[in-house]
Nucleic acid binder design. Structure first.
Lengths: 159, 159
DNA sequence: TCCATTTCGGTACTTAAGTATGAATTCCGA
DNA sequence: TCGGAATTCATACTTAAGTACCGAAATGGA
Protein backbone atom coordinates (compact mmCIF):
# COMPACT_ATOMS: atom_id res chain seq x y z
CA UNK A 1 0.00 0.00 0.00
CA UNK A 2 2.84 2.32 0.86
CA UNK A 3 4.79 1.48 -2.28
CA UNK A 4 1.74 2.20 -4.42
CA UNK A 5 1.44 5.64 -2.87
CA UNK A 6 5.15 6.25 -3.49
CA UNK A 7 4.79 5.19 -7.10
CA UNK A 8 1.90 7.62 -7.48
CA UNK A 9 3.99 10.45 -6.10
CA UNK A 10 6.89 9.63 -8.40
CA UNK A 11 4.59 9.45 -11.43
CA UNK A 12 3.31 12.88 -10.49
CA UNK A 13 6.84 14.24 -10.59
CA UNK A 14 7.61 12.63 -13.89
CA UNK A 15 4.43 13.96 -15.49
CA UNK A 16 5.16 17.39 -14.08
CA UNK A 17 8.68 17.17 -15.42
CA UNK A 18 7.42 16.20 -18.85
CA UNK A 19 5.11 19.19 -18.91
CA UNK A 20 7.82 21.58 -17.77
CA UNK A 21 10.25 20.17 -20.30
CA UNK A 22 7.77 20.53 -23.14
CA UNK A 23 7.08 24.11 -22.12
CA UNK A 24 10.77 24.94 -21.93
CA UNK A 25 11.44 23.42 -25.35
CA UNK A 26 8.58 25.41 -26.82
CA UNK A 27 9.88 28.54 -25.16
CA UNK A 28 13.36 27.99 -26.49
CA UNK A 29 12.15 27.25 -29.99
CA UNK A 30 10.18 30.48 -29.91
CA UNK A 31 13.21 32.41 -28.62
CA UNK A 32 15.32 30.74 -31.29
CA UNK A 33 13.40 32.34 -34.14
CA UNK A 34 12.49 35.59 -32.53
CA UNK A 35 15.55 36.99 -30.81
CA UNK A 36 18.60 35.06 -29.77
CA UNK A 37 19.63 32.61 -32.33
CA UNK A 38 22.02 33.73 -34.98
CA UNK A 39 24.79 31.66 -36.45
CA UNK A 40 27.38 32.80 -33.95
CA UNK A 41 25.07 32.61 -30.94
CA UNK A 42 24.46 28.87 -31.19
CA UNK A 43 27.13 28.15 -28.57
CA UNK A 44 25.38 30.30 -25.97
CA UNK A 45 22.12 28.59 -26.81
CA UNK A 46 23.60 25.13 -26.33
CA UNK A 47 25.17 26.15 -23.02
CA UNK A 48 21.88 27.60 -21.85
CA UNK A 49 20.10 24.41 -22.83
CA UNK A 50 22.64 22.29 -20.99
CA UNK A 51 22.51 24.30 -17.80
CA UNK A 52 18.72 24.50 -17.83
CA UNK A 53 18.11 20.82 -18.33
CA UNK A 54 20.84 19.84 -15.94
CA UNK A 55 19.16 22.00 -13.32
CA UNK A 56 15.88 20.36 -14.24
CA UNK A 57 17.49 16.96 -13.87
CA UNK A 58 18.92 17.86 -10.52
CA UNK A 59 15.58 19.13 -9.32
CA UNK A 60 13.81 16.03 -10.57
CA UNK A 61 16.35 13.82 -8.89
CA UNK A 62 15.97 15.68 -5.63
CA UNK A 63 12.21 15.26 -5.86
CA UNK A 64 12.53 11.56 -6.59
CA UNK A 65 15.04 10.84 -3.86
CA UNK A 66 13.98 13.14 -1.08
CA UNK A 67 11.69 10.51 0.41
CA UNK A 68 14.65 8.18 0.66
CA UNK A 69 16.66 10.58 2.74
CA UNK A 70 15.53 9.70 6.19
CA UNK A 71 16.66 7.97 9.31
CA UNK A 72 14.98 4.68 10.01
CA UNK A 73 15.04 3.89 13.69
CA UNK A 74 14.54 0.23 14.41
CA UNK A 75 13.84 -0.66 18.00
CA UNK A 76 15.24 -4.10 18.51
CA UNK A 77 13.97 -5.82 21.62
CA UNK A 78 16.38 -8.49 22.71
CA UNK A 79 15.24 -11.22 25.04
CA UNK A 80 18.09 -12.17 27.29
CA UNK A 81 18.03 -15.13 29.68
CA UNK A 82 17.55 -13.95 33.22
CA UNK A 83 20.89 -15.25 34.43
CA UNK A 84 22.83 -13.41 31.77
CA UNK A 85 20.64 -10.38 32.14
CA UNK A 86 21.78 -9.55 35.67
CA UNK A 87 22.86 -5.97 36.13
CA UNK A 88 24.13 -5.08 39.59
CA UNK A 89 22.14 -2.36 41.30
CA UNK A 90 25.10 -0.63 42.89
CA UNK A 91 23.02 2.12 44.39
CA UNK A 92 20.98 -0.26 46.50
CA UNK A 93 24.02 -2.35 47.32
CA UNK A 94 25.97 0.65 48.63
CA UNK A 95 22.99 1.68 50.69
CA UNK A 96 23.31 -1.55 52.68
CA UNK A 97 26.93 -0.81 53.64
CA UNK A 98 27.91 -4.46 53.64
CA UNK A 99 31.55 -5.40 54.13
CA UNK A 100 33.34 -7.56 51.58
CA UNK A 101 32.93 -10.69 53.63
CA UNK A 102 29.30 -9.98 54.33
CA UNK A 103 28.60 -9.58 50.63
CA UNK A 104 30.44 -12.82 49.90
CA UNK A 105 28.26 -14.56 52.46
CA UNK A 106 25.13 -12.95 51.04
CA UNK A 107 25.99 -14.21 47.56
CA UNK A 108 26.28 -17.77 48.84
CA UNK A 109 23.07 -17.39 50.82
CA UNK A 110 21.19 -16.38 47.69
CA UNK A 111 22.47 -19.52 46.01
CA UNK A 112 20.61 -21.52 48.60
CA UNK A 113 23.68 -22.61 50.52
CA UNK A 114 23.39 -23.50 54.21
CA UNK A 115 25.61 -21.99 56.86
CA UNK A 116 27.65 -25.19 56.95
CA UNK A 117 28.10 -25.06 53.15
CA UNK A 118 29.27 -21.47 53.35
CA UNK A 119 31.67 -22.28 56.17
CA UNK A 120 33.19 -25.04 54.05
CA UNK A 121 33.37 -22.89 50.94
CA UNK A 122 35.08 -20.00 52.69
CA UNK A 123 37.09 -22.24 55.04
CA UNK A 124 35.70 -20.54 58.09
CA UNK A 125 34.06 -21.82 61.22
CA UNK A 126 30.31 -22.20 61.47
CA UNK A 127 30.10 -19.63 64.23
CA UNK A 128 31.88 -17.07 62.09
CA UNK A 129 29.39 -17.62 59.30
CA UNK A 130 26.56 -17.29 61.77
CA UNK A 131 27.94 -13.96 62.88
CA UNK A 132 28.24 -12.74 59.29
CA UNK A 133 24.76 -13.96 58.40
CA UNK A 134 23.30 -12.29 61.45
CA UNK A 135 24.96 -9.00 60.51
CA UNK A 136 23.78 -9.30 56.92
CA UNK A 137 20.18 -9.87 58.05
CA UNK A 138 20.47 -6.89 60.37
CA UNK A 139 21.80 -4.57 57.66
CA UNK A 140 19.25 -5.80 55.13
CA UNK A 141 16.46 -5.33 57.66
CA UNK A 142 15.06 -8.82 57.23
CA UNK A 143 14.32 -11.59 59.66
CA UNK A 144 15.43 -14.72 57.82
CA UNK A 145 17.75 -15.86 55.06
CA UNK A 146 14.68 -16.57 52.93
CA UNK A 147 13.67 -12.92 53.09
CA UNK A 148 17.28 -11.97 52.39
CA UNK A 149 17.25 -14.04 49.20
CA UNK A 150 13.95 -12.56 48.07
CA UNK A 151 15.05 -9.00 48.79
CA UNK A 152 18.51 -9.42 47.26
CA UNK A 153 17.02 -10.74 44.03
CA UNK A 154 14.28 -8.14 43.97
CA UNK A 155 16.75 -5.27 44.43
CA UNK A 156 19.21 -6.94 42.06
CA UNK A 157 22.16 -6.79 44.37
CA UNK A 158 22.88 -10.48 43.73
CA UNK A 159 22.70 -12.65 40.56
CA UNK B 1 36.79 15.48 9.49
CA UNK B 2 34.04 13.42 7.96
CA UNK B 3 32.34 16.46 6.43
CA UNK B 4 35.62 17.53 4.85
CA UNK B 5 35.98 14.16 3.20
CA UNK B 6 32.39 14.37 1.98
CA UNK B 7 33.02 17.80 0.52
CA UNK B 8 36.06 16.43 -1.28
CA UNK B 9 34.03 13.62 -2.78
CA UNK B 10 31.31 16.02 -3.91
CA UNK B 11 33.87 18.36 -5.46
CA UNK B 12 35.24 15.39 -7.35
CA UNK B 13 31.81 14.71 -8.77
CA UNK B 14 31.31 18.30 -9.76
CA UNK B 15 34.69 18.48 -11.49
CA UNK B 16 33.98 15.21 -13.25
CA UNK B 17 30.59 16.53 -14.29
CA UNK B 18 32.15 19.72 -15.65
CA UNK B 19 34.56 17.69 -17.76
CA UNK B 20 31.87 15.38 -19.09
CA UNK B 21 29.63 18.33 -19.86
CA UNK B 22 32.40 20.12 -21.75
CA UNK B 23 33.14 16.98 -23.77
CA UNK B 24 29.47 16.49 -24.62
CA UNK B 25 29.09 20.08 -25.71
CA UNK B 26 32.15 19.77 -27.92
CA UNK B 27 30.84 16.53 -29.38
CA UNK B 28 27.48 18.05 -30.13
CA UNK B 29 28.98 21.13 -31.69
CA UNK B 30 31.04 18.89 -33.91
CA UNK B 31 27.98 16.82 -34.82
CA UNK B 32 26.08 20.03 -35.46
CA UNK B 33 28.36 21.07 -38.30
CA UNK B 34 29.22 17.72 -39.75
CA UNK B 35 26.05 15.68 -40.04
CA UNK B 36 22.83 16.29 -38.16
CA UNK B 37 21.98 19.89 -38.06
CA UNK B 38 19.87 21.23 -40.81
CA UNK B 39 17.20 23.84 -40.45
CA UNK B 40 14.43 21.34 -39.91
CA UNK B 41 16.45 19.04 -37.63
CA UNK B 42 16.98 21.64 -34.92
CA UNK B 43 14.04 20.26 -32.93
CA UNK B 44 15.60 16.81 -32.71
CA UNK B 45 18.87 18.39 -31.66
CA UNK B 46 17.21 20.35 -28.86
CA UNK B 47 15.37 17.29 -27.64
CA UNK B 48 18.57 15.27 -27.68
CA UNK B 49 20.33 17.97 -25.72
CA UNK B 50 17.53 18.14 -23.18
CA UNK B 51 17.42 14.39 -22.62
CA UNK B 52 21.18 14.08 -22.41
CA UNK B 53 21.71 16.83 -19.91
CA UNK B 54 18.70 15.83 -17.89
CA UNK B 55 20.17 12.36 -17.65
CA UNK B 56 23.47 13.94 -16.68
CA UNK B 57 21.71 16.01 -14.02
CA UNK B 58 19.95 12.94 -12.69
CA UNK B 59 23.18 11.03 -12.50
CA UNK B 60 24.95 13.91 -10.81
CA UNK B 61 22.14 14.25 -8.32
CA UNK B 62 22.25 10.53 -7.57
CA UNK B 63 25.98 10.78 -7.00
CA UNK B 64 25.58 13.74 -4.70
CA UNK B 65 22.75 12.26 -2.69
CA UNK B 66 23.60 8.60 -2.57
CA UNK B 67 25.43 8.96 0.73
CA UNK B 68 22.27 10.37 2.25
CA UNK B 69 20.20 7.37 1.28
CA UNK B 70 20.85 4.95 4.06
CA UNK B 71 19.10 3.19 6.84
CA UNK B 72 20.33 4.01 10.31
CA UNK B 73 19.59 1.17 12.68
CA UNK B 74 19.60 2.24 16.29
CA UNK B 75 19.56 -0.56 18.80
CA UNK B 76 17.71 0.66 21.81
CA UNK B 77 18.39 -1.24 24.99
CA UNK B 78 15.25 -1.51 27.06
CA UNK B 79 15.59 -2.23 30.73
CA UNK B 80 12.66 -4.32 31.80
CA UNK B 81 11.83 -4.51 35.50
CA UNK B 82 12.27 -8.05 36.72
CA UNK B 83 8.80 -8.25 38.23
CA UNK B 84 7.05 -7.28 35.00
CA UNK B 85 9.31 -9.49 32.98
CA UNK B 86 8.23 -12.75 34.64
CA UNK B 87 7.04 -15.41 32.24
CA UNK B 88 5.93 -18.65 33.84
CA UNK B 89 7.93 -21.67 32.75
CA UNK B 90 5.00 -24.07 32.59
CA UNK B 91 7.09 -26.93 31.31
CA UNK B 92 9.32 -26.98 34.38
CA UNK B 93 6.38 -26.36 36.68
CA UNK B 94 4.44 -29.32 35.32
CA UNK B 95 7.49 -31.50 35.66
CA UNK B 96 7.40 -30.99 39.43
CA UNK B 97 3.80 -32.28 39.68
CA UNK B 98 2.94 -29.97 42.55
CA UNK B 99 -0.64 -29.85 43.80
CA UNK B 100 -2.54 -26.56 43.94
CA UNK B 101 -1.92 -26.11 47.63
CA UNK B 102 1.72 -27.00 47.31
CA UNK B 103 2.19 -24.40 44.60
CA UNK B 104 0.40 -21.82 46.73
CA UNK B 105 2.75 -22.59 49.57
CA UNK B 106 5.76 -22.45 47.25
CA UNK B 107 4.74 -19.00 46.05
CA UNK B 108 4.61 -17.71 49.61
CA UNK B 109 7.93 -19.39 50.41
CA UNK B 110 9.58 -17.57 47.52
CA UNK B 111 8.27 -14.31 48.93
CA UNK B 112 10.34 -14.96 52.00
CA UNK B 113 7.42 -15.82 54.26
CA UNK B 114 7.93 -18.07 57.26
CA UNK B 115 5.85 -21.13 57.93
CA UNK B 116 3.90 -19.20 60.55
CA UNK B 117 3.22 -16.39 58.05
CA UNK B 118 1.98 -18.87 55.49
CA UNK B 119 -0.24 -20.58 58.04
CA UNK B 120 -1.83 -17.22 58.88
CA UNK B 121 -2.22 -16.24 55.25
CA UNK B 122 -3.90 -19.47 54.25
CA UNK B 123 -5.72 -19.89 57.57
CA UNK B 124 -4.20 -23.28 58.15
CA UNK B 125 -2.35 -24.81 61.05
CA UNK B 126 1.43 -24.64 61.30
CA UNK B 127 1.74 -28.40 61.08
CA UNK B 128 -0.24 -28.45 57.84
CA UNK B 129 2.12 -25.90 56.36
CA UNK B 130 5.08 -27.94 57.53
CA UNK B 131 3.68 -30.95 55.75
CA UNK B 132 3.14 -29.00 52.54
CA UNK B 133 6.60 -27.45 52.71
CA UNK B 134 8.17 -30.82 53.29
CA UNK B 135 6.37 -32.26 50.28
CA UNK B 136 7.36 -29.28 48.14
CA UNK B 137 11.02 -29.67 49.08
CA UNK B 138 10.78 -33.39 48.31
CA UNK B 139 9.24 -32.82 44.87
CA UNK B 140 11.66 -30.03 44.05
CA UNK B 141 14.58 -32.20 45.15
CA UNK B 142 16.05 -29.59 47.47
CA UNK B 143 16.98 -29.65 51.12
CA UNK B 144 15.88 -26.26 52.39
CA UNK B 145 13.42 -23.47 51.65
CA UNK B 146 16.39 -21.31 50.66
CA UNK B 147 17.31 -23.75 47.89
CA UNK B 148 13.65 -23.92 46.93
CA UNK B 149 13.54 -20.14 46.48
CA UNK B 150 16.73 -20.13 44.44
CA UNK B 151 15.59 -22.99 42.22
CA UNK B 152 12.07 -21.63 41.75
CA UNK B 153 13.40 -18.26 40.62
CA UNK B 154 16.06 -19.82 38.44
CA UNK B 155 13.55 -22.08 36.67
CA UNK B 156 11.02 -19.25 36.57
CA UNK B 157 8.19 -21.20 38.10
CA UNK B 158 7.53 -18.36 40.56
CA UNK B 159 7.57 -14.54 40.19
C1' DT C 1 52.57 4.02 64.69
C1' DC C 2 47.90 4.34 66.33
C1' DC C 3 43.16 3.43 66.09
C1' DA C 4 38.79 2.29 64.03
C1' DT C 5 36.97 -1.25 61.36
C1' DT C 6 36.85 -5.71 59.83
C1' DT C 7 37.36 -10.42 60.42
C1' DC C 8 37.36 -14.46 62.94
C1' DG C 9 35.94 -17.50 66.51
C1' DG C 10 33.68 -19.13 70.69
C1' DT C 11 29.67 -20.26 74.10
C1' DA C 12 25.00 -20.41 75.27
C1' DC C 13 20.56 -19.98 74.17
C1' DT C 14 15.95 -19.55 71.64
C1' DT C 15 13.36 -20.27 67.79
C1' DA C 16 12.27 -21.83 63.25
C1' DA C 17 12.73 -25.36 59.92
C1' DG C 18 12.37 -29.76 58.49
C1' DT C 19 11.35 -35.03 59.05
C1' DA C 20 8.62 -39.05 60.18
C1' DT C 21 4.46 -41.08 61.02
C1' DG C 22 -0.29 -41.56 61.55
C1' DA C 23 -5.01 -40.38 60.82
C1' DA C 24 -9.36 -37.97 59.54
C1' DT C 25 -11.69 -35.47 56.01
C1' DT C 26 -12.61 -33.68 51.46
C1' DC C 27 -12.36 -33.57 46.54
C1' DC C 28 -12.76 -35.16 41.99
C1' DG C 29 -12.64 -38.09 37.99
C1' DA C 30 -13.93 -42.73 36.16
C1' DT D 1 -20.88 -43.60 43.93
C1' DC D 2 -16.51 -45.48 44.60
C1' DG D 3 -11.55 -44.98 45.43
C1' DG D 4 -7.28 -42.76 44.97
C1' DA D 5 -5.32 -38.42 45.54
C1' DA D 6 -5.31 -34.26 47.99
C1' DT D 7 -5.89 -31.73 52.11
C1' DT D 8 -5.83 -31.10 56.81
C1' DC D 9 -4.02 -31.67 61.47
C1' DA D 10 -1.41 -33.65 65.29
C1' DT D 11 2.67 -35.38 67.97
C1' DA D 12 7.41 -36.13 68.58
C1' DC D 13 11.75 -35.50 67.23
C1' DT D 14 16.26 -33.73 65.01
C1' DT D 15 18.69 -30.26 62.99
C1' DA D 16 19.57 -25.77 61.17
C1' DA D 17 18.99 -20.98 61.78
C1' DG D 18 19.34 -17.06 64.21
C1' DT D 19 20.48 -14.02 68.48
C1' DA D 20 23.32 -12.13 72.15
C1' DC D 21 27.51 -11.31 74.05
C1' DC D 22 32.15 -11.86 74.33
C1' DG D 23 37.15 -11.41 72.95
C1' DA D 24 41.32 -11.78 69.92
C1' DA D 25 43.65 -10.98 65.69
C1' DA D 26 44.23 -8.76 61.26
C1' DT D 27 43.72 -4.90 58.31
C1' DG D 28 44.13 -0.45 56.50
C1' DG D 29 44.27 4.49 56.57
C1' DA D 30 45.50 9.10 58.80
Amino acid sequence: MNSIRQLYHRSQHILLYGGVMALLIMLMKWLQWKYLITDNAIDIYIGLLAVTFTALGLWLASQLTKTKVRTVTVEKEVLIPQSEYFVLNEEELNRLELTKREYEVLELITRGQSNADIADRLSLSLSTIKTHVSNVLLKMDVKSRAQAIEKAKRLRITP
